Simulated assay, not measured.
Amino acid sequence: MVSSSSYRDWAWLPKNLLWSIVETYLDQFSDFMRYSSVCQQWRCVALENNHRHKQTLNIFKACHNKLPMLLMGAKENHDEKRLLFSVTEGITYEVQLPSPCHNRFFGSSFGWLFTVDKTIITLLNPFTGRAIPLPAFKDPFGYFEDYMDEIRDYFVEKGIILSDPCLSPNSYEVVVIYGGMCRLAFFRSGDNSWNFINTKRDYVFSDVVYHKGQVYAVNCWSELVKIDVASEVDHVVTKRSRVCAQVAYLVESQEGDLLLVQRFWKSIDVDDENNSHSKTFKFKVFKLVYPVGEAQEKWIEIKNIGGQALFLGDNHSLAVSTSEFSGCQSNCIYYTDQNHVISPPYVCHGLDDDLGVFNLEDGKFQPHYIPDLSEKQMFPPIWFVPNLKGN
């Protein structure tokens, strides 16, 4: 037992000493966050006039309740910077990346981003600087290898992480949609290679989700497929629809239901030189149900998602409770452009970009971020929930 004479109350060290520690040693924001977590006194000292981390602190305050923010490339695709836009505040923050990254981001599960460099997929937490390179991506079916150099940032369309690598460093799993036929590949931490799932036929998947302990994927015909990634067995859950959407999304609602969102766009002329741009004109939302007396589950269209909002795009599709976020609109879909130019330079920003908010009740569209004319040839935007707690 420690005697009272040897006890030291570290919380009440002189402020000048505590401030000296902040200024001298806390270069990384992750160190700053750990320092702030020691006790209330240390946190107060850390927050006082801390200009070095003021920008990141503002981001932390804006996203502490897990509301997605819009992550975009900085002007001229600056390798060491990105922009984060808060839809509820209407404020854009500039983020300094721990290390340069000249590739497109996608995925965004648990605060981790996916990025691809040639055949290497890397998981990156842009705030803590932690990066996890995954094994080389070598498709045994050869669907993308002939043209991978031309679409190097897009041979992997989407990715999800089934559990947080910070919490499960030895047991996290990753699923991606890749190649021109939009097939599935699976990776488990500790493995030396990817497992390429050879389904019964080419479904051409549009989205993938981890729902109630199972991996589900869907195509643009609303055909839902349950995938056993361990045995590579696929089971068709719902029938193929007669209607083909441009994109289909899978989202787990706040109530735990599995939702399907269909997105439809059309081409419109944007100038006198016959240049066109795709513009979304409709969304439809469905819920997976198992009708009594029927042998198969089916999608039932719903017109109202209640007090929640959906965030859709190149990210892991998300549903949030709007009651927790002032300024976040209920019964709405926040979406980003997904009809990308898939080879550099990426002309995916501008006044005619296809991003905004869709209200399910009245069917109206409105903008959430309006880029200016100088923000062209930049990386596509993506919804992202920063995680500042990873090590």
Rank of each mutant, 00 (worst) to 15 (best):
W112L: 00
S253H: 11
V218E: 00
F141G: 05
Y216R: 10
Y203S: 05
L17C: 12
Y249M: 09
W12Y: 15
P371F: 08
F325R: 04
M72C: 12
C332H: 05
T92A: 13
L259P: 01
W265M: 09
S4T: 11
P371R: 09
Q214E: 14
L113M: 01
T88G: 04
R263Q: 14
N387M: 01
T122D: 03
V208N: 00
I268H: 15
F127D: 00
V292G: 07
Y154S: 02
Y346Q: 10
N359K: 10
F137T: 06
H102N: 08
T280H: 04
I160E: 02
C63A: 15
G190T: 03
L184S: 03
I160W: 02
N219P: 01
K200V: 07
D9I: 08
C166G: 01
L351R: 14
L26W: 03
I382H: 09
N16M: 07
L250C: 09
N275K: 14
F205Y: 15
Q246M: 10
T336D: 01
L97N: 05
D164A: 03
A136K: 09
S241H: 08
V225H: 00
V233I: 13
L26E: 02
I120R: 11
D257C: 09
F144A: 09
E80R: 11
W299C: 05
M181Y: 15
